[in-house]
């Protein structure tokens, strides 16, 4: 038998997890106010909603992952200006609403935009993006001078 850390969030009734979701959104707003390691310039007012983002640094590249469920790839625009990456787009609600009686609408819709300033230079001509199962992954290879270098030191 393995010992598992007790996780208070697991198995909570829906109302409580909704509240935790709200708390997450508020935390994100605070994170944005007191920027951590990564500088993000976003205009909260311009976005109807804000997709969750992970930014990972690897030896040779950065990987930016955005949760964009229900957004077709043609509705997303990715632009890079220097080290400044911007992802914007729109998540549309299905147009056909005739004969549909909505009981619940929890999903977010509308325009979104997120931008980041990366901590090191990237090779803009090698930037790639892939969309899989509602997750957009933008891969930005680091410029040569930004990669960690290994230097052999001889011991005499």
């Amino acid at each position: 038998m393995t010992l598992v850390r007790w996780n208070p969030v697991h198995d909570l009734p829906a109302g409580v997890s909704d509240m935790l979701g709200m708390q997450r959104d508020i935390n994100r707003m605070f994170d944005r106010l007191f920027r951590g390691g990564l500088e993000e310039e976003g205009n909260l007012a311009a976005s109807a909603w804000s997709p969750a983002v992970d930014v990972a640094e690897l030896d040779d590249r950065y990987e930016v992952k955005l949760e964009l469920p229900g957004v077709p790839k043609d509705d997303v625009k990715i632009s890079l200006e220097g080290d400044h990456l911007t992802v914007r787009g729109e998540k549309r609600q299905e147009k056909e609403s005739k004969g549909k009686n909505y009981h619940r609408v929890e999903r977010s819709y509308g325009a979104f935009q997120r931008s980041f300033t990366l901590p090191a230079h990237v090779r803009s001509e090698k930037v790639e993006a892939a969309f899989t199962d509602g997750v957009l992954t933008v891969t930005l290879p680091k410029a040569e001078e930004a990669r960690p270098k290994q230097i052999d030191v001889k011991v005499k």
Partner: peptide, 9 residues
């Protein structure tokens, strides 16, 4: 990954 610069997920 070497380090996470932002983690919301």
């Amino acid at each position: 990954t070497v380090s996470m610069l932002a983690r919301e997920i």
